[in-house]
Computed example of a mutant assay.
Amino acid sequence: MTVDYQPQVHPDLEGRVVEISFTRSDFTDEPIPVLVISNSDGLHRVSAFHASLRQQLALVNPEVGCRLGIRYVGKRKLRNHWRAEFHAYHVAKAA
């Protein structure tokens, strides 16, 4: 059984990418990456609806079979904008 990654509950996720697909969103024209990550806790579905997670994934370019670590670091303020916030992530791919 695959469970959805809930970054506000469990901010850290690490494991092997076993599937990559894409879905759509009503909020952007960009394709939304959906990764399934396997670790000792089971299968976790990561849907990159947050723009910063999509950007981080694009930087590391994950592939099926690679080890990937995702950390949700919380909401951050946008520079030069006193009200706007975004959800920040760090993503790393093992060599």
Rank of each mutant, 00 (worst) to 15 (best):
R45I: 01
L57K: 03
I37K: 10
S38K: 03
I20V: 14
P7N: 05
S25A: 02
A84K: 06
L78F: 11
N61Y: 09
I32G: 01
R24A: 03
A58V: 08
L13A: 09
S47A: 14
V46G: 05
A94R: 13
E30N: 08
P7C: 05
L59G: 07
V73R: 04
V60S: 12
S40T: 05
R83A: 07
H10I: 13
I20D: 06
R79S: 12
L53G: 07
I20T: 11
H44W: 09
Y89I: 08
F27H: 06
C66V: 03
S52G: 10
P31R: 04
D41T: 05
N39W: 07
S47Q: 15
V46Y: 02
D41K: 01
S47I: 14
P33D: 02
R76W: 01
L43W: 07
I20Q: 10
D4R: 09
P7M: 04
T2E: 10
I70V: 11
F86I: 03
V60L: 13
S52F: 12
V60C: 14
D29W: 04
A51F: 09
A94D: 13
H44A: 01
V17H: 02
E30T: 06
R76T: 00
R83C: 03
A84Y: 01
P33A: 03
S21F: 11
L13E: 10
V18N: 09
Q56G: 07
K75V: 13
T2P: 10
E30H: 08
S25M: 03
S25W: 07
S21A: 14
L43M: 05
L53E: 08
A94W: 14
Y5N: 02
V91T: 11
E63Q: 15
L43A: 06
K75M: 14
E63F: 15
Y72H: 07
P31A: 07
A94L: 14
F86Y: 08
V91L: 11
